[in-house]
């Protein structure tokens, strides 16, 4: 289970990272093309926007798995370890609930754009395509988040460290 979730989170991050690298190359080529006078890649900024959204969504699982979200622990660190574990588990559960809510609403947003036929300005591809890719990454995020929440609760109950902390 542990291995499978790690593999899933890492694979998703790599896919997102490769998309980001692809966007870096696309934007560089497009800019260079304009500067030397052979013209931009048409509508490259629309691809950039949709692509970077996907990349960011696919970066969430690994961030989740490593507990890499920014926190202030100066006050709680004074408390006993047990209480700290409980606090961490509590926020992990809330965070997971929030991520599930976000993903569900993203899905509804996708449905809306499928329904209303809105396209992008230049390339005129349907807006929901971007939503669909991002939603796929969101599903992975939710899976990883649920796993992390369960593990944090188990850490809290058993008093042993099971997940990495940033």
């Amino acid at each position: 289970m542990h291995q499978a979730v790690h593999l899933l989170a890492r694979t998703t991050a790599i896919i997102g990272g490769l998309v980001l690298v692809g966007l870096v190359i696309l934007t560089t080529v497009s800019t260079a093309g304009r500067e030397i006078g052979i013209g931009e890649v048409n509508g490259s900024y629309e691809i950039l926007e949709a692509g970077v959204a996907f990349a960011i969504f696919s970066f969430f699982p690994i961030c989740q798995l490593h507990g890499a979200h920014a926190t202030v622990d100066i006050f709680t660190s004074q408390l006993p370890k047990r209480i700290n574990r409980a606090i961490i588990a509590f926020w992990e559960v809330v965070l997971t609930a929030a991520l599930i809510l976000i993903s569900w609403r993203l899905y509804e947003g996708m449905q809306r754009y499928i329904g209303n036929g809105e396209t992008t300005f230049f390339l005129q591809f349907p807006v929901w395509w971007g939503y669909a890719f991002s939603f796929a990454a969101c599903v992975v995020t939710c899976l990883v988040a649920v796993y992390c929440a369960v593990m944090r609760v188990r850490e809290c109950l058993s008093g042993r460290a099971l997940l990495p902390t940033a």
């Binding site: 979200h69 920014a70 926190t71 202030v72 709680t76």
Partner: peptide, 8 residues
């Protein structure tokens, strides 16, 4: 200060 992720 209760250690909630700041974004959350």
């Amino acid at each position: 200060f209760l250690r909630a992720p700041i974004g959350l």
